[in-house]
Each structure stands twice: as structure tokens, then as C-alpha cells.
Simulated assay, not measured.
Amino acid sequence: MNLQQLRYVVATAEHRTMTDAARSLYIAQPALSRAIRDLERELGMTLFARSGRGVVVTAQGRRVVKLAKEALDAVHEIESLAGHGRSADTDLRIALTPSLEPALATRLLPAYAERNPAVRVHIVRCDGRDGVVSAVRDQRADLGLTDLPVPADLIGHPLERQEIVLVSPPGLDLPDTVPMARLTGMRLVLPKRGSARRREFDAMFAKYGVRPVTAAETDERGSSLAHVRAGLGSLLGYRGLTEQALRAGLVIRSLDPPVRRVIAIVHARRRLPLIVQDFLALAEGGSAA
């Protein structure tokens, strides 16, 4: 038995389907099923029973889930006490993606620094939501700034809604607000297939019945903008990219209907140091729907 298996058990119990639990953990569904079966074999008990397309927690499973949550909470608290060789009272590490950094740097960080001048804030830059989740899970960051949803072992505090816009090279014959139908046949720089963000974009395309052409695939924001600058195609990204895109000579357009995502501050399910609690209180006090 290991901590990863305990996390898998808790996520499966919370989501009630292997598919949803695996998606929340950013792992393949067969890998999750195999890990649960291995744990059940090791313990000599059945934790989950099949029910239609989902699962239900057995009586023995409910007890294991309760103890697993307590064990994970205890591990997080011990790790917090250890501090990983740094001062938990003066250092605050925040993981985020470059596209969301303006939302933090222009409003929250100046206000937090004014209220907590002795705290050193370190930015951990990550490629995509998966990178932010990993940084928070691995204790390389106390907090993360990313879009929802996040895995069940993290807690998210909604901060604001950000609009998804179309970033294009200059010279394209497009209206200022681009109808969603115009994405059909348009060359787009997209996240890599199989990534959580790509699945979200594919779901959006399916919802509106559009079929863009994949010009390039990358999960790195810098590479995405470079592809657009090179004229390979357009890019769907948060409006927080606007300043960086405009400096590169690119054009920003809204979509019709508008598409927005909830941006949240996330952290592990553990007792948080006071400096982290102070940051959350400041963020929640000034958050906008």
C-alpha cells in the first residue's frame, strides 16, 4: 500500500466513476482500475462495487476511504511542519502559467506585499494546468493559480472568470468578434492530444459543431505564440495573454458566443500556514465573479 493508492481510493469514492476519477487525477482509466484492483487484492477486501456505468463504495470501502482521508491529511500536516528546508513563515511559493501571471502580478501581489512586507513571494512558472497541479501536489508550491476543474485531492477557491479569445497573426480577414462557426476550417495551434486542455477544447468544438484544422500541437505557451507569429495559425487563449500577444504584433478577437473559464487559487487538502491563509483571505476578499 502507498500514498498514491490512497489518493486513488479517495478520488474514486468522490467521483463515483473510474472514468471521472482518472480524469481528475490526470491518469489513464485502466491504470486507475489496475491500482484499485491491486490494493483490493493486497487488503483482501472489495472497496468498490460496479453499479451501471459507475461504482459504489462498499461497507468496508467506506471505512477505508475515511482512514485514507485521515492518513493523507496527516501526511500533508507532517510535510508542512518539515517545511522542506525552507522557512514556512517567510516564503510563499505560487505556481501558475504565464497566461495567468498578469492576473496575479497586477492586483494580488502588490496588495499582498503591502500587507506582508516580510514575506518573500516566489513564482513557480508551469506549462499548463497539469504543471500547476503537480507543483502543488509535490509541495514545490504552496498555492496554484489555474482554471477549474482540478483533481479531487486539491481544493479550489474561485477567483475570477477569464474570457477565451482568438489570437491571430495580422492580415486575416476576420470580424472584430469572431462567430464560433468561423473556426471551422481555420488553422489553429492547439494543445497536444490527450492533454486535459485539449479535451476541453475538443468538447467546445463538439458543442458548437465546428471543425478547425490543427496547424501545430504544443503545451508550451511560448511555443504557441511563436507558431502564431510565424503565421502557422491562430491560437485560443486567455485574455491575460493580450499584452504579450500585442507586443508580438498579433491581433486579439473575442468569440461569439463568448467563452469564459473560472480561474481559481488551489491548494492541497491540509492545514495551511498563516501566510498562505492570509493570501487566500486577500484573494477571496477581492475576487470577482
Rank of each mutant, 00 (worst) to 15 (best):
L25W: 07
A281W: 02
G128W: 01
H157D: 12
G54D: 10
G83I: 00
A68L: 00
V56Q: 06
P110C: 00
Y8F: 11
S168V: 01
R239Q: 08
G144P: 05
R221W: 15
F48M: 00
E284A: 02
E40A: 00
Q4V: 13
A289K: 07
K207D: 09
G128M: 02
R229P: 09
T19I: 14
V65E: 01
T177S: 12
L274D: 08
T242E: 14
T19E: 15
L190V: 15
N2C: 11
A215I: 04
Q277L: 05
P110K: 05
E220H: 12
V119C: 12
T106M: 09
F205R: 11
K66C: 08
L39K: 06
T146D: 05
D173Y: 13
P151C: 12
R253Y: 09
V178H: 03
A95K: 10
D278N: 13
L282P: 07
R247S: 14
V75T: 05
L67N: 09
T17F: 01
A21K: 08
E163P: 04
R129G: 09
F48C: 01
G61F: 07
G61M: 03
R53G: 15
G54N: 13
R41F: 15
A203W: 05
L154N: 10
S87W: 10
T242Q: 13
V167Y: 09
P98T: 14
P170K: 12
V266Y: 07
I36M: 07
P149W: 00
R125E: 12
D173F: 11
E114N: 06
E243A: 14
R161M: 11
S87G: 06
R50T: 11
S87L: 03
V251R: 08
E42H: 04
L172D: 10
V55A: 03
P273W: 00
R129C: 11
A68I: 05
Q162F: 10
E14L: 05
A226K: 15
I36Q: 11
A11C: 02
E220G: 05
M1A: 03
A248C: 13
V55G: 03
S287V: 03
L143A: 08
I252Y: 07
L183S: 10
V119Q: 10
Y208L: 09
A135P: 03
A215L: 08
P179M: 00
R7M: 08
A11R: 05
A21I: 07
A74I: 06
T17S: 08
P169A: 13
D147Q: 08
R229K: 15
R120D: 01
L241R: 09
L190A: 12
